[in-house]
């Protein structure tokens, strides 16, 4: 299945969840906000939400310094 993650298209296994994707990217432990097709998905749904063909994701990390 093709996904577009932060602007880059790539191949991913079918049935991948958001949490699964974050694990693959090595950022499962980091606090992030995830948008799927321009909608923010609440963190509580990351483990249940399955991604589908051509989903477009933006993963934004928390930055808090000043």
């Amino acid at each position: 299945m093709q996904l577009i993650v932060n602007g880059e298209r790539g191949d991913y296994p079918e049935g991948l969840t958001i949490q699964g994707l974050l694990t693959r990217l090595g950022i499962a432990q980091r606090p992030v906000a995830v948008e799927v097709n321009k909608k923010v998905v609440p963190k509580a749904e990351h483990t249940s939400r399955e991604l589908t063909e051509n989903d477009t994701l933006e993963i934004v990390t928390f930055v808090g310094g000043g």
């Binding site: 963190k43 310094g65 000043g66």
Partner: peptide
Amino acid sequence: SIFRFEGQVTTILPGDGPCYRCLFETPP
């Protein structure tokens, strides 16, 4: 906000666009 080499900026107009919590609902 800034961190190492990265920065983020947005302008929040309450009632007329998203706020910081719309993206990051609760603090880390």
